[in-house]
Design a protein around this nucleic acid. Structure first.
Length: 912
DNA sequence: AGTTTCACG
DNA sequence: ACGTACGTGAAACTC
């Protein structure tokens, strides 16, 4: 095997990392995200390559030859953002400390140095992997030189590799012809002008048929289309110049010996210190376990194994609780470990079609252990032959009464055995971390240790893998002890850090007044569940089954063969190849067969309508009829779904296992399923929803006079909008105009784009643009408000709701137009959606609280974003209506009044 | 594990 | 030249 050299385009990878990794700073406020991303890419590459040599090339600040030539055409390059600029010298220092060779040379770009080194290596028989984000470098690809382009795809970095054949496959030209391609099409990121009117498509076609820019010019008469021909004729010198600009110099005069570039041990003392300063704990852990200081910490963990020790521990705590001077403010990190709730378990379906294995939350839960941290002490206690479960249970009750200040993770999941209330001093750090950054997908103790304590602690996965906790409890006792200690320790230590940040970011009140009380509200809702008529649900499913069978038969007949209708791939082939239906449009992997495409094909073939109906029915059968049935608890005939508080980016609640927030309503057949959701005996359902809460929030937050006035006068907002946008007197507005205006109003809330609106209304982008223009003329403050939000998002990196709920928007920094536009729409939508979420959260806390305080029989069961469902005792109907009206109305006082619709029914279908 | 489709606000 | 409306979750197919 020959030797291998890895070359890295320093600035290009830093740049990529900067835009791909969310903003990171160390405690000195130094931005570190680009360096972090760079290191991750570097380690990934090195792991894959097993290379012998490594070199990183940088550009020097002085204008280069190629750069200078271009300057004569047009201004300067976009300057590097300051946050990135400051990271460059640190990066170089770190590479230096790690003993990694770097090269830079005045008058040459990194490209030229990389090209020169790559060619040199190739000549010496060394194979090369050249890592860069710049596609310019593809011109260097050969069989020995592999160009590697990292791509950040949803947080993960994937690397595209190009040898000669890969370039030809992807771009239909040889590596050297990439230069000609750039000569014609230009490259905005490299400030290469190219030929006006020629883009990627035309450039590729021209080079494919002529081979080069020069050849094409010699046969200029044959160049097609005429537009490109004339442009090339006129701007030929521009093309030649662009080619020169795009050509990488492979003969840069640099001194280089492979010996210097040899890969040695990176893990030096200097590098360790520097990485510590950068606070990259996860990378630090690569530096060997002996360097991490968790060993010391683990030595301080105490494992309580005898009842005697346990009794002493808990009585010590009890004493402290009694001490008047600090008892009540004593901070305790606590985590209770219990058997996995049956709520999460898989269901077994017996032969008789009965679903079994489901316990509801009131069923006695069994406790496996407790982790505790207070002062400098960290303990864990596990249940055993001596320490019985009910002993632990009693201790937990005593502790709860002692009234310490408890901090923990995922509190809602512990409330079934941890007897604390809204009034207790108890804090859920997972919820706190969610407020500080709602974009993460996990808020477990190891995530919080990493993000806020800069510590690497073993995750559940690392300790137990895919094992269930019960199993680990039997076979890996020591790890369970350790696990609980870590949890308690982090719960205690991270509290201050998180609370300080909440304070800093103005979210203390949001946390204390809304999110923490909500934990208890959601727990109540989950524990109550909602009753479902199992027999009726089964019947509904059977009816669907019959219809599905009929349709299936008819579809196979029309198609002339049996195939899987549920497979978009097979369906696409049948529709667009076999039956040759038109509009065979789009998608990455094949034909699109989505409803809006099929809707347009309805007249072409009767099979299309059948497929649409088939889709609808199978959806209802699998997701709702069968899906819901699997969640009905044997013991109480109720479904105990989960309400998740730390999922959405905007602050909304989400619902899972099953999702009770997407039960059908728009189509009558689907809507019927709501009839199986019923109140218990002697109760009815009351369903209360906010009318147009998001538009009202928009009216308030923007302060638009016209919009506010309309709501104050209780006018039909869509009709008014229609009248203004379409220049029609109010009483002449047609139904169609009104529904179009409604779509515009929706669009505004979603962060309007003319394309999106056009798509939704099936009109041209141009027409949609006109609607939007008119809308903004009607409500001028709305436009200003939305513009300000985007501006704020760009300036601060986040936007916020009325109650200061934050939504970071890393997309706004993206160099990619699509991503950035997405960021802009998020900036416009999140404060509105987030404020609406805040408001209904306040309402549900208060409604739940009020019903409990008045000792009423009625209770809150569901929240569906702007709607609350209450199981109401027949004798309490009027009182509950009053409570709903009052608490929902007064949840917040905006410039415009809230309007609440309340309906009553003997099932969810009737009540909505 | 990722994609497509579709249910809701 | 590009290719989208904002926010979710579940099921089924595909690899």
């Amino acid at each position: 095997m020959g030797k291998k050299l890895v070359l890295i385009d320093g600035h290009s990878i830093l740049n990529r990392a900067f835009y791909g990794v969310p903003d990171l700073t160390n405690s000195d406020g130094m931005h570190t995200n680009a360096i972090y991303g760079f290191l991750n890419i570097l380690f990934k590459i090195l792991e894959e390559e097993q290379a012998d040599y490594l070199t990183v090339a940088f550009d020097l600040k002085a204008p280069t030859f190629r750069h200078k030539m271009y300057k004569e055409y047009k201004g300067t390059r976009k300057p590097m953002p300051e946050e990135l600029h400051q990271q460059v010298p640190i990066m170089k220092e770190l590479l230096n400390a790690m003993g990694i060779k770097t090269v830079e040379k005045e008058g040459y770009e990194a490209d030229d140095l990389l090209g020169t080194l790559a060619k040199k290596a190739e000549q010496e028989g060394i194979s090369v992997s050249l890592v860069s984000g710049d596609r310019d470098l593809l011109q260097l690809a050969s069989d020995k030189i592999k160009i590697r382009i990292p791509k950040t795809k949803r947080g993960k970095t994937e690397i595209e590799d190009y040898n000669t054949n890969d370039v030809i496959e992807k771009y239909h030209v040889t590596p050297l012809q990439i230069i000609d391609l750039k000569g014609l099409m230009g490259d905005t990121s490299d400030n290469i002008p190219g030929v006006p009117g020629i883009g990627e498509k035309r450039a590729t076609a021209i080079i494919e048929s002529f081979g080069s820019v020069e050849e094409a010019y010699m046969h200029i008469e044959e160049v097609k289309p005429p537009k490109a021909r004339e442009s090339l004729r006129e701007h030929y010198d521009m093309a030649v110049m662009s080619k020169k600009l795009a050509t990488i110099d492979t003969n840069a005069p640099i001194e280089f010996s492979f010996e210097e570039a040899k890969i040695e041990d990176f893990y030096t003392k200097e590098a360790f210190e520097l990485i510590k300063r950068l606070e990259f704990k996860s990378i630090l852990s690569k530096f060997g376990k002996d360097m991490s200081h968790n060993d010391n910490l683990e030595q301080a963990f105490s494992y309580i194994k005898t009842k005697k020790e346990a009794e002493r521990l808990f009585s010590e705590l009890e004493e402290m609780g009694k001490a008047p001077e600090f008892g009540k403010d004593m901070a305790v990190g606590i985590q209770i470990l219990q058997r996995e709730k049956d709520n999460n378990s898989k269901f077994s379906i017996g032969k008789d079609g009965q679903y079994s294995l489901f316990a509801d939350k009131s069923e006695a839960s069994s406790i496996l252990g407790i982790g505790l941290a207070f002062g400098e002490k960290v303990f864990s206690v596990l249940a055993n032959e001596e320490i019985k479960e009910d002993f632990l249970m009693k201790q937990i009750e005593k502790m709860a009464k002692a009234g310490f200040s408890y901090s923990t993770f995922q509190l809602k999941e512990q409330l079934n055995i941890f007897p604390v209330t809204e009034e207790s001093k108890v804090y859920d750090l997972s919820v706190a971390a969610y407020l500080l950054n709602p974009l993460k997908d996990s808020y477990l103790y190891d995530d919080i240790a990493r993000d806020y304590l800069m510590m690497t602690v073993p995750s559940y996965q690392e300790l137990f893998g895919k094992r269930k906790i019960e199993e680990a409890f039997e076979s890996k006792k020591e790890e369970v002890f350790n696990y609980l200690c870590y949890e308690a320790y982090v719960a205690l230590k991270a509290k201050h850090v998180l609370f300080e940040k909440l304070e800093e970011e103005n979210m203390k009140e949001l946390y204390e007044e809304i999110e923490m009380p909500l934990v208890f509200t959601l727990y109540d809702m989950e524990a109550r569940g909602i009753m479902v008529n199992k027999e009726e649900l089964k019947e509904y499913g059977e009816q669907l089954e019959v219809k599905i069978h009929e349709l299936e038969k008819n579809i196979y007949d029309l198609a002339g063969e049996v195939f899987n209708i549920n497979s978009p791939k097979q369906l696409g082939v049948i529709l667009f190849e076999k039956l040759k239906l038109p509009f065979a449009k789009k998608t990455k992997t094949g034909y699109s067969t989505s409803a809006d495409i099929l809707e347009k094909l309805k007249c072409e073939d009767p099979i299309v309508s059948m497929i649409l109906e088939y889709r609808q029915l199978t959806k209802l059968k699998s997701t709702y009829a069968d899906g819901l049935a699997a969640f009905i608890s044997e013991s109480d005939q109720r479904i105990h779904g989960k309400f998740n508080q730390t999922i959405t980016a905007t602050g909304r609640i989400s619902s899972t296992e099953p999702n009770l927030q997407n039960i059908p309503i728009r189509m009558e057949l689907g809507r019927q399923i709501r009839k199986v959701f019923i109140p218990k005996e002697d109760y009815v359902f009351l369903d209360a929803d906010y009318s147009q809460i998001e538009l009202r929030v928009l009216a308030h937050m923007s302060g638009d006079k016209t919009l506010i006035k309309a709501y104050k006068e209780e006018q039909d907002i869509h009709k008014i909008t229609a009248s203004q946008v379409f220049h029609t007197p109010l009483n002449e507005v047609t139904g169609i105009q009104r529904s179009n205006a409604k779509a515009v109003n929706f669009g505004i809330v979603y962060g309007i784009s003319s394309f999106g609106l056009g798509q939704d209304l099936n009109i041209t982008r141009k027409e949609a643009e006109e609607y939007i223009k008119k809308y903004f003329e009607t409500y001028p403050r709305v436009k200003e408000f939305l513009d300000e939000l985007v501006e704020k998002g760009k300036k601060d990196g986040y936007v916020e709701s009325l109650f200061h709920r934050r939504r970071p928007i890393p997309e706004l920094k993206s160099a990619n137009y699509m991503q950035r536009s997405f960021g802009e729409r998020i900036a416009m939508n999140s404060p509105i959606q987030g404020t609406a979420a805040d408001i209904i959260k306040i309402a549900m806390i208060r409604v739940n609280r009020e019903l409990k305080q008045r000792n009423m029989k009625s209770s809150l069961l569901l929240q569906v974003h702007d709607e609350l469902l209450i199981e109401t005792h027949k004798e309490e109907i009027d009182e509950v209506k009053e409570i709903l009206q009052k608490e929902m109305f007064h949840a917040v006082h905006l410039e415009v009044p809230m309007e609440i619709d309340i309906n009553e029914g003997k099932n969810w279908y009737e009540a909505k």
